[in-house]
Write a protein that binds this DNA or RNA. Structure first.
Lengths: 86, 86
DNA sequence: ATAGTATTTAGATACTTTTCTAAATAGAGT
DNA sequence: ACTCTATTTAGAAAAGTATCTAAATACTAT
């Protein structure tokens, strides 16, 4: 975690779209992948980066992996942006 | 401009540092470059990206180019972050 | 045990970004 | 006009990121 990892994570449109989707509620990896014209492997890679940056967390259930949004991480970024231009 | 350009611009630590420096007041390209262990050409490249994304603006005076922070661009990003996690 | 589904990991390739050096531009002062 | 300083642009090399396909893992259900 840290500012750099967070900002890098948010710098890709696919990853921002994933977060927006998860804002509406928990989703499985497959449901998330279905939104994109990308292989599941690629979406899995993006999920991994978001998870590493702390934006999402996962839990297994049956043979699905559910992802959910983790809002606490946004605070540092918001603080930084507010200090600069908010 | 647009979300993608803004986020990409903020995704690099050098560029974030430049914005922080400019928060304290207008600076010339040279003064900004002096903060980094990078060539002036490289810093100039980062300034160009920040300018294109609308985060900074420039004006010439003698043979210096002064850069200054442009806070209005932060609003879209703040809105997006607030909607998601704020 | 086997077969099927969901997802990730590995390795390769293509693309993008960052950085450098050298050359170009522009303006200031002599 | 010439020289000096400030800065940018061009082109190339290096590093980093996104993507794919194929193989691996893990769990379910028969």
């Amino acid at each position: 975690m840290g500012m750099n990892e967070s900002m890098k994570a948010l710098s890709d449109p696919v990853r921002r779209h994933i977060l927006e989707k998860l804002k509406a509620g928990t989703r499985t990896a497959g449901e998330i992948a279905a939104d994109f014209d990308l292989s599941n492997a690629t979406v899995s890679y993006h999920l991994k980066l978001l998870k590493q940056a702390g934006f999402i967390s996962e839990h297994k259930e049956k043979n699905f992996i559910y992802y959910e949004l983790n809002t606490t991480v946004f605070e540092d970024i918001l603080r930084w942006l507010h200090r600069l231009g908010g």
